[in-house]
Simulated assay, not measured.
Amino acid sequence: MRYLVIVQLGQATVSHVSNLVPSLQAELGAMSKEPVELAFRSAPADLFGFFVDTDLAPQQIRARIESPGGVSSLTSKMPILEGNDALLIIQLGAEADSTKGFTRALTWLQRH
């Protein structure tokens, strides 16, 4: 199943973005069958979305982002999102179209 995982940061500080984005990409990449692709990013980098291809349900994706590595204190990592960050996970269907500016996103959707 293909998903668009959208994150809205409560605070788009350089420190928060530089810590969150690599961790999020790594976690999404670990659960995706295909390479994760950046779908869009706002100019201030406080809103962005990634395409993910996984057999997991949206609730499982959210759980892995909220508690990477599981809930065991021996294997868990710090949560990726902070309390004022927002997450939206949307399952994508088979049909898609785009205009100039979103051709890379459309290419990912057509190939995966």
Rank of each mutant, 00 (worst) to 15 (best):
T99H: 07
Q11L: 03
S98W: 01
M78Q: 15
R64W: 07
G93W: 10
L9N: 01
E37D: 11
R41L: 01
Q110K: 15
R2P: 02
P79L: 07
F51S: 06
L92S: 11
V5C: 11
F48R: 02
S98Q: 04
L81W: 06
L47F: 08
L106I: 00
F51I: 05
E34K: 13
Q11D: 04
V36T: 11
I6L: 12
P58F: 00
L106R: 02
F40R: 08
H112V: 15
L28W: 06
L9C: 00
L56Q: 15
G70C: 09
D55C: 13
G101D: 13
Q59R: 14
A45V: 10
P79S: 11
H112E: 08
Q25A: 00
A12L: 05
G49S: 07
L47D: 09
L38D: 01
V14W: 02
G101Y: 13
F50Y: 15
I90F: 06
A30L: 13
F102R: 06
L81P: 03
S72D: 15
L24E: 07
G83I: 04
R2F: 03
L20K: 04
S76P: 05
A39Y: 01
G29C: 12
L28K: 02
V5K: 04
T99F: 11
S73T: 14
L38Q: 11
I90V: 13
S67V: 04
F102Y: 12
D97H: 10
L106G: 03
L20T: 09
T99S: 14
H16V: 01
I89M: 07
T75S: 15
L20G: 00
K77P: 03
A43Y: 05
M1Q: 13
T103C: 03
F48A: 06
V21F: 05
P68A: 05
I61R: 08
G83P: 08
N19M: 08
S72T: 13
I80N: 06
F102L: 14
G49I: 05
S42L: 00
L28I: 10
S67Q: 14
K100F: 09
H112Q: 14
E82R: 12
L56F: 08
R64F: 00
R41P: 00
L4R: 03
Q59S: 15
L9H: 04
G10M: 07
F40C: 02
K100L: 15
L28Q: 01
A45G: 10
Q110P: 02
A45F: 09
L38I: 08
L24D: 06
S32V: 13
A105S: 15
E66S: 06
L109Y: 08
L109F: 08
D53H: 12
R64E: 03
K33N: 12
K33Y: 04
Q8V: 10
F40N: 03
L38S: 03
P22M: 10
L106V: 03
A57T: 12
L81V: 14
M78G: 07
